[in-house]
């Protein structure tokens, strides 16, 4: 068991930065670190797998990689800008305003007219009764959001 462990760890696997390590001397086998919860290792023991088994596994992996890569690309193509980022306008008592779909980093268009008797539209804000008005020239959309109408009463209040 100890022997196998050593063989596996010491298997030739040259990497770009692999340190040259002299192989462990036979008589001097000390208990090294042996990971594995309940003795289960995440990686198969290469030396225990036959040449053929390895070839089979790598071929299967090749197929899996190809299929997954294709799937990712297809999913990307199938879910295009159909939805985009939706910005809805809540007129808060005014007449309804159409929502807009934009792409990340784009600005919004000025929304259509909305009217509410007795009030003037001051602008749109990201929060109901928000202070900061949305700047349709400068502000860009980075997430799905709702803009709320900001109303100021007409004329002097009774």
């Amino acid at each position: 068991m100890q022997r196998n462990e050593e063989e596996r760890r010491g298997g030739p696997a040259p990497g770009p930065q692999r340190q040259e390590v002299p192989p462990a001397e036979g008589g001097e086998s000390r208990p090294g670190r042996r990971y594995g919860l309940f003795g289960v290792s995440a990686y198969p023991e290469k030396s225990r797998m036959g040449e053929r088994q390895r070839a089979d596994m790598s071929r299967l992996l090749g197929v899996v990689i190809g299929v997954m890569a294709l799937a990712v690309v297809i999913v990307l193509f199938l879910t295009p800008m159909s939805s985009g980022l939706t910005v809805t306008f809540d007129a808060l008592g005014g007449s309804a305003v159409e929502s807009q779909s934009v792409r990340y980093g784009e600005t919004l268009e000025e929304p259509g007219e909305t009217v509410r008797p007795g009030y003037q539209l001051a602008g749109w804000s990201t929060a109901p009764e928000g202070e900061a008005l949305w700047d349709f020239e400068a502000n860009t959309v980075t997430e799905t959001l709702t803009l709320y109408a900001v109303w100021v009463p007409d004329g002097p209040e009774a």
Partner: peptide, 10 residues
Amino acid sequence: GSNPEAANVS
């Protein structure tokens, strides 16, 4: 990382 036993021995 590549071989803890060998590293230990060396």
